[in-house]
């Protein structure tokens, strides 16, 4: 069983959590403009990374809040936990921390990079969680 660090409650058993799949999948900005192929992408296609993966968890039997984590899908080790709405603080290819605005007090652009297609439009995530 995984020991998962809830950002609000601290380390708790995996059985208290609900898994939410890949993080940073934004709701389409203009749903009416999407082709069938793009809808299929949004609904059914997710990265299936062997290695570091940015994913969502909800502490459903605790504070009931959603948060993001970076976990290795082979060893299952969770290396980073970070709040909803924040860009992934880790370069998923190298595992290195990305300098973010929080680190430097400026340089707000740096957080969005890496992770291939997965990091975009984090601002929409809060609303996505409500579904």
């Amino acid at each position: 069983m995984l020991l998962i660090e809830c950002p609000n409650c601290g380390p708790r058993d995996e059985t208290e959590f609900h898994y939410g799949g890949q993080a940073h999948v934004a709701y389409p900005e203009d749903p009416y403009a999407l082709t069938d192929k793009e809808w299929a992408e949004y609904l059914f296609y997710r990265d299936n990374t062997r290695g570091l993966y940015a994913e969502r968890w909800s502490h459903s039997l605790g504070c009931r809040k959603w948060f993001n984590a970076v976990r290795d899908t082979v060893t299952y080790e969770i290396t980073t936990v970070y709040p909803m709405g924040q860009p992934c603080p880790v370069d998923l290819r190298t595992g290195e921390r990305i300098r973010t605005a929080a680190d430097s007090g400026s340089d707000a652009e740096a957080g969005g990079g890496s992770g291939g297609s997965s990091n975009s439009a984090d601002t929409t995530i809060e609303s996505e969680v409500g579904r």
Partner: peptide
């Protein structure tokens, strides 16, 4: 969760 470890909880 997604996993390639050939093991679970």
């Amino acid at each position: 969760y997604n996993g390639f470890g050939q093991r679970g909880g």
